[in-house]
Amino acid sequence: MSKHRLLAMFKDFDDAFVVVDKIKAKSVSGVAVEDINMMSPIEHPEIDEKLGHRPVNIQYFTLMGAIFGITFGFFFLTSAQASFFLQPQGGKPVVPLPTNFVLMYEMLIFFGIWTTVFAFLGMSKLLRPRGTLYSEKLTVDEIGIVLEVDDDNLDSVKDFFKSNKALEIREEKV
């Protein structure tokens, strides 16, 4: 069975949340609140409340990056110094831990930040085509709701949107 993807535009968050609430209350057949993809010009904390819990896992990558950074830093520095111990300098030992801590700290942050950024690029599905189902008004002040619906329910969902103050509805075949 073929599917269609719908984009409905709303004037503000209030209008969009009415629609989300109705879908949540299962008053529309063929769509569930889990399928909703909400596009907005700003980040609104209530979006998460309305759509239900959707996990964010970036922090685990950050943690791994940071741990990698500090362990790698330690072993990199000590082994480099140990193989270059020709110059134990100024009365200090070959592996001076206090100074190495400084560099390990920098490496922790360095790897932490880069893994965070790469995790962000991956987890938020950036760096891939935006798709045609998009309106430039989304970056001004309108809110969009994207839903994937079966062909059977297409018209009923469209009607539902229209009766709930949707300013514009766009669709594409999946």
Binding site: N37, D48, S124, L126, G131, T139
Partner: peptide, 17 residues
Amino acid sequence: CLGWRGDDRQWRNFRRT
């Protein structure tokens, strides 16, 4: 903009990042 669409997934991850 790396293909930013402004959907809820992106905003959530964006804020955390």
